[in-house]
């Protein structure tokens, strides 16, 4: 559409099958780092000089989630160049930041398009944007509207009030479940290499089937840490992620013992109960980066205790298996 600052693309609020397919693919890690839209100003509906300006990142999934909230409304969407990274991660890296917002306001000549001077930002963008700096450098005031884009319609309808629920972080079953595929896919490549080594190692030391069994045991422990731990997160004991993961790894070891135990002796049983919980604990610890409540200091503290423990367990288990192979 035409504006005093030139032509602005008009965009739809309904997501097409291709948008949903694209989101699904990125959730599985396919083309995830190259899923973006051009930065700039976009129009939704037929916005005028007094309509709200909503700011987001140029990760296409972020852009899709935001625009799909505004069916039947007139809104300006200001998309920042975050190189295809979501708001929160980009804010952490500084690309969804003060400098980029100032630049984008000037490049789109936003001040000519609208008559008011308020920008609505996602709350998690505050990690990268200093509101008082924006005001000082551009004259625009920043309102951190809500954490989730889904709350924006209610925020606008109720006179631009952020309720306490809109300000509170959540990590629901669904919010955790959508993160599992990419965790699993990213763990798969190193796991494949390890499983191959374990199979060869097992076949050399024991029966030919023992290597395959050990590789499957490893795969189960990886799955427990990358998929089961995120899903069951609030119900697993302890605050530390490695303990949550170790508990699952222990449960998996017990299950695997029940399923294939006939072929185990005491040495390989002890080895399994040392190594498998350590593997699950490592993957669960990695999930800290996907959660919205772990602090850097906390993760460092946990790693200092957990990594040496995991290393010792894996080493001890490995030595037991070698002894077992030599004796066996």
């Amino acid at each position: 559409m035409e504006t005093p600052a030139g032509r602005v693309p008009l965009i739809a609020t309904e997501l097409l099958f291709s948008d949903r397919l694209g989101a699904w693919k990125t959730r599985w890690g396919i083309g995830r780092m190259n899923y973006l839209v051009p930065p700039g100003l976009y129009a939704i509906g037929t916005p005028g000089a007094t309509d709200p300006v909503v700011v987001t990142a140029n990760y296409k999934m972020s852009y899709d989630i935001v625009r799909s909230q505004f069916g039947g409304r007139n809104v300006w969407l200001l998309v920042l160049e975050t190189f295809g990274i979501n708001v929160w991660c980009a804010a952490g890296k500084g690309t969804f930041g003060t400098g980029e917002l100032v630049r984008r306001i000037s490049e789109t000549r936003l001040a000519m398009v609208i008559s008011h001077r308020q920008l609505l930002l996602p709350m998690l963008g505050a990690v990268g944007v200093a509101a008082h700096e924006i005001a000082r450098r551009t004259g625009f005031t920043v309102r951190y509207a809500a954490i989730r884009a889904e709350d924006l319609p209610e925020f606008l309808d109720k006179g631009r009030v952020t309720t306490s629920a809109m300000r509170e972080m959540t990590f629901t079953f669904r919010e955790r479940a959508v993160l599992v595929p990419v965790e699993f896919v990213m763990a798969l490549k190193p796991a494949a290499v390890i499983m191959l080594c374990v199979s060869l190692f097992g076949a050399l030391l024991g029966r030919p089937g023992a290597g395959i069994e050990a590789a499957v045991a490893y795969f189960g422990a990886m799955l427990a840490g990358t998929a089961v731990a995120p899903i069951l997160l609030p119900w697993l004991p302890g605050r530390s992620f490695s303990i949550k993961g170790a508990v699952l790894g222990f449960a998996w070891s017990a299950l695997w013992l029940l399923l294939t135990g006939a072929a185990w002796n005491s040495l390989s049983t002890v080895a399994a109960f040392l190594v498998l919980p350590a593997v699950s604990a490592f993957h669960a610890l990695n999930f800290t980066g996907c959660t919205p409540y772990t602090s850097r200091t906390g993760v460092k503290k946990e790693m200092r205790a957990a990594l040496p423990a995991m290393g010792t367990a894996v080493l001890a288990g490995g030595i037991l298996l070698i002894i077992n192979g030599i004796l066996g």
């Binding site: 800290t288 980066g289 959660t291 200091t297």
Partner: peptide
């Protein structure tokens, strides 16, 4: 400030 992420660390 920073990200509480084990793989990042």
């Amino acid at each position: 400030s920073g990200v509480g992420c084990a793989s990042g660390l």
